[in-house]
Computed example of a mutant assay.
Amino acid sequence: MKKKWNGKVYKNHLWTCATASTVPEFERAMKNLKEFNKDCHKYLDDIPPRHWARSHFTGRAVSDVLLNNMCEVLNRWLVDARDKPIITSLEYVREYLMKRIVNVLGNIKKHNGILTPYATKQFEVIKKDASKLTVLWSGSQQYQVNGLHGEQVVVDFGTRECACRRWEITGIPCKHVVACLYNLAANDDQVSPPDQGGAPEHWLHPVYKMETWRKTYTFTMKPVNVPPRIRATAGRPKKNRKKGLEESDNISKDGRLSKKGVQMQSSYYREFGHNNRGCTNGGTSKKRTSEAGGSGSAKKSKKDARA
């Protein structure tokens, strides 16, 4: 979408559609985009909204994350291991996970609250916004919550649902739910079971609890023994086993090197199959060779004299 329809206006339209938590809000945002640009609206409408819009999230993942920042962070730290051999690359990943887990364990020891640091920060903002709302009890497990800008939603504690769907999607009670919890506490009603301390934080999904965070990191990466590297020698490595002196095939019975398998050649006629001792024309050939050498020397002397 950024390649075809770039700019802040298109970006705002996209985020309005993506961050809408209810289907009616999503449809209104898509309608506004259609009035602004029909081609851009058709491009987004062809993509199933369950892949990119909060309004169509089921809540099974207990998350409203729209970006892949978690994957990008991991990819950033593992980019140096891409061009390495597979064993070296896996060792790089293992060592990174070891350091990552140790850092998280250090953060766990520093935090003693009911919720994780991220959930604590988010819930503090929600509680601050909840103090500005008014609540009406229906006499059952349903409440009506009115906002400052005329908004009016229904909270059902029986099904743990709110009309804004934020509680259902994220697992964190929205400002409407927290406002109802404040109303319960003001009327001396039990906000949560007595064994849990009666705090609104216990209405969050277990994934945001410190207890769950500790259980997640009970399994650590173990160190591995790696033998020292052996520097390879120059040249092509030999495949055949080196034989000992006593098992060599080239040693004869008298201790001398055997010529078994070596092809004999006569130095007289350069014939194969026999040596000088077995050559029948050894003397004759030797004489002819010397005579030929002498004749050649005489001819060369006469030529030099003429010159």
Rank of each mutant, 00 (worst) to 15 (best):
V178R: 02
K3V: 06
T280N: 12
R28P: 00
V154Y: 05
G255E: 07
G235D: 07
Y10C: 05
Y208L: 02
T88A: 15
T289S: 14
R229C: 08
V23A: 12
A185V: 01
S258H: 01
F157T: 09
A307D: 13
W77E: 14
E161D: 04
T233F: 15
K2D: 07
E25T: 01
L136R: 10
I87R: 09
G59S: 06
D156A: 01
V62T: 14
T216H: 05
L14I: 06
A18P: 05
L105F: 00
L136G: 00
G197K: 06
R166V: 14
H274P: 02
Q144I: 09
L78Y: 01
N103P: 00
K3Y: 04
Y96T: 11
K303R: 12
M221H: 06
A61R: 10
A232C: 08
I169W: 11
N75M: 08
N225T: 10
S266V: 12
K260D: 13
I87S: 04
S192P: 00
Q144E: 12
E247H: 06
P237Y: 09
P227M: 04
F57E: 07
T116V: 08
N276S: 13
N275K: 08
A232D: 05
N12H: 13
K209Y: 14
L257E: 08
E124K: 15
